[in-house]
Design a protein around this nucleic acid. Sequence first.
DNA 1: GTCGTAACGGTTGAC
DNA 2: GTGTCAACCGTTACG
Length: 764
Amino acid sequence: MLPREAEAQDGHLDMQLMSKVVLSAAALLLVTAAYRLYKSRPAQAQQKGGNTEAKAEKEAEGSGRLAVQSASPGKLQRRLRRQSTSHKAGAPLGRSWEDPGGPCVLVLGATSRDRKFPTTDRQGPEQVPPCCCGQEAGTAVGGKLTPPCSSLAELAAAVDGSCVGGEPAAWPDSGPPEQPGPGELGPTHSCAAPVEDSSDMKQSWAFSHVAGVSREEAGTLQAASDMGLAVQQLEGATNASYTFSSTAWVRMEENFIQKAEGAGPQLKGKVYDYYVESTSQATAALAEAPTPGPVLEPPDTGASSRDQAGDTEGGAEAIASPHPLQSPPTHGFSRKESLLQISENPELQVQPNSFGAPAPDHPDQGTLPASAGCSGEPHVQLVAGTNFFHLPLSPASALDICLDLGNCYEVLTLAKRQNLEALKETAYKVMSDNYLQVLRSPDIFGCLSGAEREMILQRRLRGRRCLVAPCSMGVSALTFDLYNESSKTHRGLVSTPLGQGRVNQLGGVFINGRPLPNHIRHKIVEMAHHGIRPCVISRQLRVSHGCVSKILCRYQETGSIRPGAIGGSKPRVATPDVEKKIEEYKRENPGMFSWEIRDRLLKDGHCDRSTVPSVSSISRVLRIKFGRKEEDEEADKKEDDGEKKAKHSIDGILGDKVSSISRVLRIKFGRKEEDEEADKKEDDGEKKAKHSIDGILGDKDSSEAQFSSRDSKSSGAENALEDVEAVAMTQEQRERQGPSEDLTGSQGPQKKDTEHGVGRKFQY
DNA sequence: GTCGTAACGGTTGAC
DNA sequence: GTGTCAACCGTTACG
């Protein structure tokens, strides 16, 4: 118990320390950014800037703990009024910011923005729209989109005291924030019921101040920072999760242009918003899981938030308290619910790709927006040495939409209607990422144009670029071109360095005689697994339906997507054991003919029909073992009868040279043309359909007689996946690996593949 | 329209 | 080092 408590407190103290450090850093960055931004507009305001900047610095130096006191309510309201008048675009502007304030909005900025830029405007802080969090996002885009609550949003709501607690101090100039509307407590509405006792939660988190400066001159600079600490503990659990979040927000308005106009106050300049957010989590062991207690109502959260906001010091004290968990509960904590729901719903945690929302785990990196779900995400600007996240203030942007398959097409339609390229890109990306599901959804795939289908397919394929392994010139070069973003078309593959690429009737590229890349094969199987018909697969992947059918049949039979072994010669059927038997028969009966030996081998069960050596092979063995005899040759010739005719004709064509060479080969390798001819005859129907599935299956059946204890299908599926992943291994390497594995019996499917080779049928 | 399959031209690799 | 040959490949066309 005690050690656990100590650990918990240690962890909490660590969080406090970290909080301070991060807050300090955030504040410093904030001030630096604000200074630089404002510096670029020197003539705008010098009257009050000194005070505000001084305040900002003061607040920054104070680790953001008590910054609220520096804010002047009066100043705040003046600024708000001015903004409300100047912002005709307040609505769109506010909306564009409100949107991020939805599920994916960052913690403080949205709240602050909402308070500062009410869409209804000119009412002062009292009428400022309430906290951003929650379902506003869904309504932001015409109410059509009701995206699932973002984990980030909920996390933000949980972490951010502004949303839940509505810390009024978040904006010094916003005055006491009004009570958030019931529907606006997004975190509350969207979060599951808290499991942990609220009182514990209250004590476990604390919110610092929010600092802000503003200018009333033509150019307006606003800056704010915020930090929050939340603790989540599941019922009965002994571990608590600490989530710390800090946010710095800067807004710069270039409204000084309105002076030149002279027609009255009119904001024609730009509004820049920057923010940087840092979120970190830690887990600490607690003494005991607190008993779940009654959940505080949402209104309480807001009230308490305000109280806390008004009493920022209290929050600061909570952070600084050495025993925060023991402090009396004072707040309602819908943030617990948010955290809990996030923790219980993994899908809510995977929202870094949510468009327009910064990933919580990557506070300041430039890749944050890059990880968003599309190429049109807000760009990152380097300000004051820190990557800031710049959201374009597009009036109609709906940056907080959480796209999924359920709404991607609607979003796409909306984006098209409103000409939102970024949103379109995001929707396309969702479709591409869920390509198989899209294919199965007539309401999505059926509504897409041909170009769009092609585009999402291309993006889907492009995403596999990492699978390219340029180990083999023949295949890899082609594959690389296929996924080269610069080409972006299949046709770009045609001109491979080797010039082997060809384009089939469907527009797909292939190399004649060479198997398709593994990822294509895997995709075929994958799509088939999703119930997509072969004809659709063929069209989508631009692979002939014959090939699709072949691959699927093979996969169904063998469980492997790999192509068969290419090349090579038929292995010897006259194995040492068989040769030994032949020698034994000959010793027992020297006058025994080769065909008699052959029959004896079959009769005694040493060989079956598929593995018994040809008469020629037996004769060769006899020649090697017992020396050359004219009689034997004569007898062999007679036995071979008509089969030799073809050979003789060939000899006649090629002359004595071939005969002599064959003789040499016969002695040297124990193999000659005649043997192969005889083997061909003996193989009879087994070879008739080499290119057909029947042939493959026939080979399989024959081989199964020898490898009856194989269980290829179970491991075959794994190999199918493995095929895609193991791209470092070239096709040829795999093929070569197959036969060796056959012998060891370590890989069923591979064995089956090799069994398809006719030669493998006669392995033994 | 879908699917199976033989034929084709090609590649590969063991011999 | 080269040629042969039998395996494989994917495409195409046909039913």
